[in-house]
């Protein structure tokens, strides 16, 4: 479903990604792990072209999205993204946040969008906050609304960029539970996270990045019990 082929990204003189190749199958849950500054988020952001790779190709369903002829907006319609800092639209209620893209991007009627919005907010357990503005919500609630907002476009792929890193500890679980539920529905998910237990439990595959290089690409059991590189071993010693 996703194929990345020798992706590099250079910011000024700083080579953040040094040729990353991987594939993600349909329905697969992939978590990207690694130390800060390893390029995890940059790689994730390349997948929906929020960052443009300096070189290399990315294919979604065999279509090369890194081709200059491609319409980025079309590509992004089928890829949802959840950010570390939520980025909800502060001047819209929770429900309006979820309804906005289906109406404006897909041209859906207000009634239809409202139905979808209400269903999705119910799915993330936010029915009682439909009319609340974002700054009335806790971090965990905001992130759940943000997930509902991304799902409203009925994406084929969901990208999560450290979705729980900005949350108070007691709110992490409610967001991870929503993500687990989503994984169980067979959604293709790519998740940058520091939540090792979540990765162990939910991921089909772990990517370990360090200094812009993909050091390990393996299933969670092997990665957490018997990582093949020394770098991954020392990383795990520190975080587990």
């Amino acid at each position: 479903m996703i194929k990345a082929d020798h992706i590099t990204k250079v910011f000024g003189k700083n080579e953040v990604l040094k040729g990353i190749s991987t594939t993600v199958e349909k329905g697969e849950v992939v978590t990207i792990i690694g130390p800060s500054g390893s390029g995890k988020s940059t790689f994730l952001r390349c997948l929906n072209l929020l960052e443009e790779p300096t070189s290399g190709q990315i294919y979604i369903n065999d279509e090369e999205i890194t081709s200059p002829r491609v319409n980025k907006m079309e590509i992004r319609k089928s890829i949802g993204m959840v950010f570390q800092h939520f980025h909800l639209f502060p001047h819209m209620t929770a429900l309006e946040n979820v309804m906005y893209a289906p109406q404006k991007v897909k041209g859906m009627s207000k009634k239809e969008a409202e139905q979808i919005g209400k269903n999705l907010l119910a799915r993330v357990g936010m029915t009682d906050k439909e009319t609340a503005y974002p700054n009335r919500l806790s971090g965990g609630q905001k992130q759940r609304v943000a997930i509902a907002r991304a799902l409203a476009m009925e994406p084929e792929i969901m990208l999560f960029d450290e979705p729980t890193s900005a949350l108070d500890p007691e709110m992490v679980k409610e967001v991870l539970d929503v993500m687990k539920g989503l994984a169980e529905t067979g959604m293709t998910m790519v998740i940058v996270t520091h939540e090792m237990n979540f990765a162990k439990e939910v991921a089909d595959k772990i990517l370990f990045l360090d200094d812009g290089v993909l050091l390990e690409e393996t299933e969670p059991n092997t990665f957490f019990t018997n990582p093949s590189t020394e770098r991954a071993q020392s990383f795990l010693e520190k975080v587990l």
Binding site: N48, L50, K72, M73, E74, R76, K77, I79, G80, M81, F83, H85, H87, L88, F89, Y100, A101, K104, V105, R149, A150, M153
Partner: peptide, 14 residues
């Protein structure tokens, strides 16, 4: 906030 632009872009908003 730049995140607002990114969130809108990620949703495919023109």
């Amino acid at each position: 906030d730049k995140g607002q632009t990114e969130a809108a872009k990620a949703l495919g908003v023109p």
